[in-house]
Design a protein around this nucleic acid. Sequence first.
RNA 1: CGGGGUGUAGCGCAGUCCGGUUAGCGCACCUGGUUUGGGACCAGGGGGUCGCAGGUUCGAAUCCUGCCACCCCGACCA
Length: 491
Amino acid sequence: MAKGITGRDKDYSQWYNDIVVKAGLADHSAVRGCMVIKPYGYAIWEKIQRQLDDMFKATGHQNAYFPLFIPKSFFSKEADHVEGFAKECAIVTHYRLKNDPDGKGVVVDEDAKLEEELIVRPTSETIIWNTYKGWIQSYRDLPILINQWANVVRWEMRTRLFLRTTEFLWQEGHTAHATKAEAIEETIQMINVYADFVQNWMGVPVIIGTKSEGERFAGAIETYCIEALMQDGKALQAGTSHFLGQNFAKAFDVKFQTKEGTLEHVWATSWGVSTRLIGALIMAHSDDNGLVLPPKLAPTQVVFIPIYKSKEELEQITEKVNEIKSQLEKRGVTTQYDDRDTLKPGFKFAEYELKGYPIRIAIGPKDLEKGTVEVARRDTLTKEFVKQEGIVDYIVNLLDTIQESIFKKALDFRHDKTTKADTFDEFKRILDEKGGFISAHWDGTAESEEKIKEETKATIRCIPFDNEIEEGTCILTGKPSKQRVLFARSY
RNA sequence: CGGGGUGUAGCGCAGUCCGGUUAGCGCACCUGGUUUGGGACCAGGGGGUCGCAGGUUCGAAUCCUGCCACCCCGACCA
């Protein structure tokens, strides 16, 4: 086990915190519930952003930016929406400070009270729909396909680095459509984009499905989600896409004229993923030695470490490293050469394992002699000597192999941790002994869902898209059910 | 908001119960040398408003009062 990292078996929470802090991803800040995302952590976020942004553009979306502040009155327009967010809003009431008359520091200037308070956005539906009202008159103005990269604030009672922070970074797509069918199609398209990204780039398998009524987004008609399973057997919601119906169009009076000349309310969607994805990345793949990053999201994919005794040796090694390094870079591989002479190789090995670099290449005197290099894989912690000849192709292929292998491992884990339960006792036993997803029949009522949650802390994560139709009886009430749904304890 | 814990060097801690030289230790850092295929070693060196504000005392990291911050567990949530 790496120095200073708590084992997963010992304390999973502490292990997670140790990885985040020791791998240099983020730190607690001086502000309660808010984190400082450090350069290495932010580099991962930038990779996530870049890829998702490309995928959004490829599906016809454009980026825009809306204000951080939302007038309080906007929140009272959509009843469910305000109820969902009211309890966790930061509110701006004043716009000026002054010197404390008692001479100590500064105080809020009570004369500078705002006429109407401003809410720091917890999500932007309201300000955006207020804006769309001015943009939409005719069916010719539709669809509007916009995404925003932004920060939002939700005053959560308890926070955890990346998984739930008071302020977090995310993207939120907000689209407007002429028809219900088109809006639903958009909602589904985007949840599929998320699933594609999370599986093929993050290497985290997900279940795509719909949320039960109780877990639905405040103000949505239908919420689609992707659910991932973490190594401790708890589920994590990795992304959501909401079909908002005409709720926001009605709340903000957004109508358009159809070809036929009638006036109709616009159909809406919204969808988002956040820095929480980094939490998912960590909890899905990492081990007791530190972070494990999929090659496609690793800020640096290959690190070179020289092993030498003399200056002459180092020079020869450096020459060889530079040769391989530049060839790799030409193939689009990101690399780094760590020739710091104050640290021993062993220390560097441990450090890059902690930081999750997918491949480490060590070159020493033996390699110069034999024309080899030592290639170490982070995901499997295996090492082998490889001929320098053909090394570039070898590494390029290996990166793909690692990407697939990481996904496969997580997928196998999820298969092992997905269990069917047919009675409530069985359900509870699996939950306590094994964790993971439990596929069980449910009578479809919010009451039963709530009771199960109260008794077991497990919630319905989703009703999978590809669910089989299967007659059965609800594990709680014994009432008839047409399909199984996926339960789990979750983050 | 309830329960628990912690605040002493960049990090991790000891010292606090029972007040008393110049506040220690490990890691990290700086200088020099020897090392380098899995977390090096020797020698020398720098770094402190002891969370904050009051109080008691000849004397406070230590005792008293008030405050603050953060972490962990729970309820709430992406």
